[in-house]
Design a protein around this nucleic acid. Structure first.
Lengths: 229, 229
DNA sequence: AAATATACCTGATAAAAGTCATATTTTTAG
DNA sequence: CTAAAAATATGACTTTTATCAGGTATATTT
């Protein structure tokens, strides 16, 4: 519980690794470790954030509510990722909500502990910038995918993404289990449409399910679908 | 032609304002001013960029080619905006193509002139970071819009966007004239669908056209459409 | 000014995706 | 363990959007 950032493995994956010892000590002293249960929010769209969240365990969905009441999931953040940076940096309220997809352990880092480093340590700022540049590229890709691919293609792609980014358990099921509704919100479609296509994939033998858990049985075929046959 | 960055008004709008006098002098000495004619590319998706482009005049469309051969326009960059930053910062080839929508005047700034400042002047880096944070937020909004709104809503929104960001000429026509194909590529739809909806808007008296030029006649109504009646 | 190309427009049709209604299964809570 | 709730599933139908095919108008070039 009271572990130090200096020893946190998770730090290897994010911009905190560009901090000096003293800077990191300050972060470590001010951080608060929190446990968030599946389904609970880290924060809601429109809130002002007083800091960022560093994910130690679990996965959070970052989503935005549309006018018609549907959530669009924009990103799934897992171990090592820092959530809320954009809002803290731009000094704006968040444009996204963050909700735990499974039980999470996160460290809350007050923005004061970061702002100083952001203004004084260009290595750190540059590192944060690189991460954001990466996020922006991914967002561009999502835009193109959503507007140019069919729902079937996007769903096939979503499963490949889940496998590549979160892996599989010992039985071959996707390690990250999303509800059909979450899948439809990632893909940007109606829940019924997502369910229908998943059923079709099952019938055709590309997927296999057990309760909520889903396993990819024919990865090659899913890839072909993504490419458009 | 040989004007100095120090005196360039455009600089007020972008991150270059956070540079020191000496840094700015270096940029000014190494920059190359270029004229790009309507339809000509600044760079193509996949290219390695040796620097960034600062827009002095005109508008560039930033787009990404999808598997089915259609372009998706991700951003329209105009006076004061810096193009290519993402790629230079991440040290990757560009994920987007940039093509002039009308005649442009841009300054090419070699990456060497920027990288040093990026590593040494945290104010500058932070300023770039803030701009990128803003771009990322906009990208998130585009994702939600494309996935949750109908083509009709998105087209109505596109015209409001064009008015707000590029203004109108003395006759009330949108100052930035886009082809129907470009409009469809902004909105993420088939060209015929865009044309059809524009025709409908004309018939209903929301828009008025003269050649390629388009004027908004009933802004309130367009706003209502965006909101979903 | 004629010839060519390009952009714009429209109708007919097909395909894709959304909506509504209603089962059925799975999960959760008592 | 059982009842209730939530999630998943599927059918029937509607709406939205894409595609194809053929026009007309508008630029551009010669």
């Amino acid at each position: 519980m009271e572990s130090r950032c200096e020893n946190c493995i998770v730090r290897q994956f994010n911009s905190l690794r560009a901090m000096s010892k003293e800077e990191l000590k300050k972060v470590s002293d001010s951080k608060v470790t929190k446990t968030i249960k599946k389904g609970e929010p880290l924060f809601q769209e429109g809130e002002k954030l007083n800091g960022v969240f560093c994910v130690r365990n679990g996965v959070s969905k970052l989503s935005k509510l549309s006018a018609n009441g549907k959530d669009q999931i924009v990103k799934l953040a897992s171990k090592g990722e820092v959530i809320g940076q954009r809002s803290v940096i731009a000094e704006e309220s968040t444009n996204l909500s963050a909700v735990a997809v499974n039980d999470m352990e996160v460290c809350f880092i007050p923005k004061e502990s970061i702002n100083h480093t952001l203004q004084k340590n260009p290595n750190f700022t540059l590192e944060v910038l690189r991460h954001m540049a990466h996020d922006l590229k991914e967002a561009d890709d999502v835009i193109v995918n959503i507007s140019q691919k069919t729902v079937k293609q996007r769903i096939a792609e979503a499963f490949l993404y889940l496998k590549n980014n979160f892996g599989e358990d010992k039985d071959g099921f996707l390690a990250l289990t999303l509800s059909r509704e979450d899948i439809s919100n990632v893909v940007g479609t109606a829940t019924e449409s997502a369910i229908r296509i998943i059923s079709e994939f099952k019938k055709k033998g590309y997927l296999h399910t057990s309760g909520k858990k889903i396993a990819i049985k024919d990865e090659r075929k899913l890839k072909e679908i993504v490419e458009g046959f």
